[in-house]
Write a protein that binds this DNA or RNA. Structure first.
Lengths: 332, 332
DNA sequence: CGGATGCCTGTAATCGCTTTCTCATATCCG
DNA sequence: CGGATATGAGAAAGCGATTACAGGCATCCG
């Protein structure tokens, strides 16, 4: 920076002013500084900046697993969105484990992250405490809980899952099953399962435990789960999946074992991944505008950072996309 | 840090020594400091550290697009691998554009990245220059060019693609087509196409331009490309895809338009994504151990950073995975 | 025409750590 | 037992920015 200042015949304070677009700087001076910067190929030190300004342009995002289309698409959108606003994205994955999430969070704080975006609202007390202690704002995504004190951008997983159930009820289904995500420490998975249960209960139907199989968002495991369900004495006529990947597992397993979808059994996914519309049969699912969700979460976080006032809970619209994998309940 | 030092009744220099695991510190003193750190919930400032030590624990990775399973899996593995070694991963995407890559690279340098990992070996001169200027080592992944001066971890795209061609030739195929990735600024896509062309030429066969369709790694575009190829007067009996996603497009399009794979046409992918084994027919492809590739790239970069000596070019083993999507050439 | 005002720029302290000296103490050996 | 050698710990100088604070110089107005 001293070199730039010398080259432009100004002080480092002025260079700093030019860099930060603030304050008064005479156009001619500004130009001289900018030319010096370009000529010297000067890149300001982010470390020094954040040290001295007590703020950084780094945002951390903690994702359960990047290796899942839904998160990958979100991270991609987030990265682009942030970089357009001059921020950098630090990523970490928690593997759905609050303790790992806490560790990642600490490492973000170590890097002076200005804010953090996390999935869900189930965080370890330590994690919340350390964020609080370092006065670092955060936003929960994938959930919508206006009554809770934490900023969030997402939707009501239970309510949305209930929508899918209502649609299947209209089609005359009565024997339901669910391939759910692992519910341990995963409020989204829990919410979806709860929503399904509640809506069925409201219609006098039950979802017995043996009709709920939890598995990871993994095609092989989901295929196995679907196979297990369909081999039961009384197989379900409708299978709700916790996520599209599980829906893919169901459809692919059906293709392999000759089960006809939707004639024998209807399948509904959740997320609307790109592949869903291309499979045969295509997958009926809940569309979640992932990219938008992450960008809105970033916006909210940036607003929080700059002290702008912003709603602290934002609901993202989801919609049921009916495709080929669902149909009327088979008549026995 | 001063608080910690005070609590442990030592100087900040000693706290620093404890933190950096170096130098001599009496076990008792070390323990006192560690307890003080834990008691105060102290998190050292990465910015101050890198400012003062002129080195950071940040590695930047520039990926063309995170929203592609192959990169997502790689990034996931990379993040985990680095975090186990005390490093943080900064990510950026280039959209296959060298200029964007350069900008991302600059922003990494701004954050004092200790090293950078990039895809491929096609980088803008500016990018190379700035990395050089800031003495920041980098590793190219997805390519293997032992003769070039830049560290790389990957494989010979042309050579590997040729393997797939040889296999198809053995099956009696003579009319080939290729759904290639967009070759602009993408040396991997170029290499694969070149390898296919070369191997065919070596066997007296030609791959005319009208039998090569470039499209993005996107199911919809690949479906369209496959459809176009198969509607030709003389459709190919073997279609090579630049990537598994394009292979998925081919298989899914075939499912929809009633084209029988492999009876009418054989399809080969590249990468061996998870879905490949689950589609029906399952996709014959080249397996690329992505996770391993990224981890080895990280290892090489860390070795470069610590001055350890390390080979500067590492070849990753790929293998042809024969599945259901390929078979003998149809007899006319 | 003098002082107030506003615009622009410089000086220097500071951010939280690392690291080089420097020095005190403990250990060792002949 | 004395001096050389390790070992352990502190003092203080930066690292490269930001940001009060201060001050110079036009401009403006009474």
């Amino acid at each position: 920076m001293a070199d730039v200042a010398a080259a432009a015949q100004v002080s480092t304070a002025t260079v700093s002013r030019v860099l930060n677009k603030a304050d008064y700087v005479k156009p001619a001076t500004r130009k001289a500084v900018e030319e010096a910067i370009a000529a010297l190929g000067y890149i300001p030190s982010g470390a020094a900046r954040s040290l001295s300004s007590r703020s950084s342009r780094i945002i951390g995002a903690i994702i359960p697993s990047i290796d899942n289309s839904i998160f990958a698409a979100g991270v991609e959108a987030l990265q682009t969105h942030l970089s357009e606003r001059g921020y950098h994205l630090l990523i970490g994955s928690s593997n759905y484990d609050p303790e790992e999430e806490y560790q990642v969070c600490r490492s973000f704080l170590e890097q002076h992250a200005a804010g953090v975006i996390m999935m869900g609202e189930t965080h370890s007390p330590d994690c919340l405490a350390v964020l609080e202690r370092y006065a670092t704002p955060f936003v929960n995504t994938g959930v919508y809980s206006p009554d809770r004190p934490y900023p969030c951008v997402g939707f009501d997983n239970a309510g949305v899952a209930a929508t899918a159930v209502r649609y299947l009820l209209q089609l005359g289904h009565e024997r339901f099953a669910m391939i759910a995500g692992i519910t341990t420490d995963n409020d989204r998975a829990i919410g979806r399962l709860r929503g399904v249960r509640a809506e069925l209960a409201a219609n006098g139907l039950e979802l017995p435990d043996e009709r709920v199989l939890e598995c990871r968002y993994d095609i092989a495991e989901s295929r196995a789960a679907f196979r297990t369900l369909m081999r039961r004495a009384e197989p379900p006529t409708a299978v709700l999946c916790g996520n599209d990947v599980q829906g893919f597992g169901a459809i692919l397993e059906a293709q392999h074992s000759g089960i006809r979808i939707p004639e024998e059994v209807s399948v509904v996914g959740f997320d609307d991944l790109v592949l869903s519309r291309h499979l045969k049969p295509s997958l009926t699912t809940i569309r979640v505008p992932t990219q938008e969700m992450w960008c809105r979460a970033a916006d909210m976080l940036l607003a929080l950072l700059s002290g702008k006032d912003t709603p602290r809970a934002l609901e993202i619209e989801t919609s049921l996309i009916v495709r080929e994998s669902t149909g009327p309940a088979p008549t026995r």
